[in-house]
């Protein structure tokens, strides 16, 4: 019994810590601020925060308890679209956060054509996903 209670407490603190770190990362990386500015809906940030809270909590519960989600194929396609959109923003923001583009353009003295570089980057990511999922035959470790 004592073991159970202490484990419960430990796990609650684990969740607390993971939540703070996880959110700090998502906020710092600035996906949601950018999305809300680009769509001119900055006055709704609180709603977006609520959505993040809800999404992380539900996603966590679904993962831990392996809850069935009977969405069907169409639902999965729509869900996948949102997953991809978010991860795309995340990886783009991450590249920006580590100042990849400013450093690269200064080093190789690239001034024009930055939009093409960004399109190429997006296409490269897309290509990587296709190769990994449809062409790799070794399932990995």
């Amino acid at each position: 019994m004592l073991a159970q209670i202490s484990m419960l407490l430990i796990a609650i603190f684990c969740g607390f810590g993971v939540a703070c770190g996880f959110v700090a990362f998502i906020i710092l990386i600035g996906v949601v601020p950018r999305l809300s500015t680009k769509t001119h809906t900055a006055n709704h940030v609180m709603l977006y925060e609520n959505m993040l809270i809800l999404g992380i909590t539900l996603g966590n519960i679904i993962f831990l308890y392996q809850i069935d989600m009977p969405f069907g194929k169409l639902g999965l396609i729509i869900l996948g679209l949102f997953f991809g959109f978010f991860v795309g923003c995340l990886s783009g923001a991450l590249a920006e956060l580590v100042k990849m583009f400013p450093i690269l353009t200064r080093r190789i003295r690239l001034r024009d054509g930055l939009p093409y570089v960004i399109v190429a980057l997006a296409l490269g990511k897309c290509l990587g996903v296709i190769v990994q999922w449809f062409l790799f035959t070794n399932p990995g470790p």
Partner: peptide, 24 residues
């Protein structure tokens, strides 16, 4: 799943609310 999963699932939203500083 164990009691650890339950605690983690409970602690996570508490941390989120604490971090974001608002409930709804």
């Amino acid at each position: 799943t164990t009691i650890l999963h339950l605690g983690y699932a409970l602690g996570l939203p508490v941390g989120l609310i604490y971090f974001f500083n608002h409930v709804a």
